[in-house]
């Protein structure tokens, strides 16, 4: 493997890592605050992709500028997060915060099953492919290999913006600080008058919107097909568990590890590429049971 191939594998890896991070960060945010592992997260990803692909397709077909695809991605993901994610939290999850962990996971599993069929009923089963956003940005030649600017530049930049943005939001704004307070100690936060219900709702909507945003960005590069959510869930679980539950920066680094691991596998041992996320997760958890950046759990006596 020479330097050129090394560089190529690196570029492919970060583009993929950026998408994985965007989805996983929403999941880890929700877990950090609500302490619920949300299986339906994959559905938000898929619905973000479907909503973007279908609306952008209609906009371009109607003769409007393909640049509108970018604002459309943000609008579509906010709508999915708010209109689907909001009611899921308010009507369903709110009833189960006191239940056992397994019941909570199963409730989100049930939501996932229901949303799978909702997608089929709304968007049908034929693949959607809408790459206007990718086409308008053109291509970049690196070391004799053609890349799309969308994957090589835009996706990593967006991922970094989201990472930095989330950090600033959580550390330096009032709403962010409230979220952190609830994460730290729910009862104490309630006692000092924080509206925990509201914090939960906002967090869930933001997390779901991030998943949908990941789907929206992915829709320009891939076919939107039934079942795309199921694969994404398992992958983002692997990222979140490897990173340490609730660790946002950890999710970024783990996504990068998995993205690079996968692309190097395609160069060196193509048959291994699907195993990479799980092997990384196993290796990390066997050495650090609480994940790369997780904190050890204090046990109750």
């Amino acid at each position: 493997m020479n330097l050129q191939l090394f560089a190529l594998a690196f570029f492919d890896g970060i583009a993929y890592a950026a998408l994985v991070f965007l989805v996983a960060v929403g999941l880890t945010l929700i877990f950090g605050v609500l302490r619920v592992l949300n299986v339906a997260h994959g559905s938000f990803y898929a619905m973000g992709a479907y909503a973007t692909a279908s609306t952008v397709g209609a906009i371009v077909a109607a003769g409007y500028s393909p640049w509108l695809a970018f604002p459309m991605m943000i609008i579509a993901s906010a709508l999915i997060g708010g209109l689907i994610g909001g009611p899921v939290e308010k009507l369903l999850l709110r009833r189960i915060y006191d239940m056992e962990e397994v019941l909570q996971i199963l409730v989100t599993f049930a939501v996932f099953m229901i949303l799978e069929d909702v997608q089929r009923l709304v968007w049908g089963v034929q693949p959607y492919f809408e790459s206007s956003a990718l086409m308008v940005l053109g291509t970049v030649d690196v070391l004799g290999i053609t890349y799309t600017a969308y994957q090589l530049i835009l996706l990593p930049v967006v991922a970094i913006l989201v990472l930095v943005g989330l950090r600033i939001f959580l550390r330096h704004t009032l709403s962010g600080k409230l979220i952190l307070a609830v994460t730290e100690d729910r009862e104490a936060a309630t006692a000092i008058g924080v509206n925990v219900d509201r914090v939960y709702l906002v967090t869930f909507v933001v997390g779901a919107s991030l998943a949908a945003f990941g789907g929206a960005l992915a829709s320009a590069t891939t076919s939107v097909i039934p079942g795309m959510g199921a694969d994404m869930i398992v992958l983002s679980f692997a990222v979140v568990a490897t990173a340490g539950l609730g660790r946002i920066e950890g999710a970024a680094i783990t996504a990068l590890l998995i993205g690079l691991g996968r692309s190097f596998a395609v160069y060196l041992a193509p048959e291994l590429d699907v195993l990479v996320p799980y092997l990384i997760m196993l290796a990390v958890l066997l050495v650090r049971p609480e994940g790369l950046f997780g904190m050890a759990h204090t046990r109750k006596i």
Partner: peptide, 20 residues
């Protein structure tokens, strides 16, 4: 056959919420 997943999901939700 179009909505069997949805049916299962709803059954599960009902069980968990009303008879955990």
């Amino acid at each position: 056959s179009d909505i069997w997943q949805m049916v299962l999901g709803i059954v599960l939700l009902v069980i968990i919420i009303f008879g955990p």
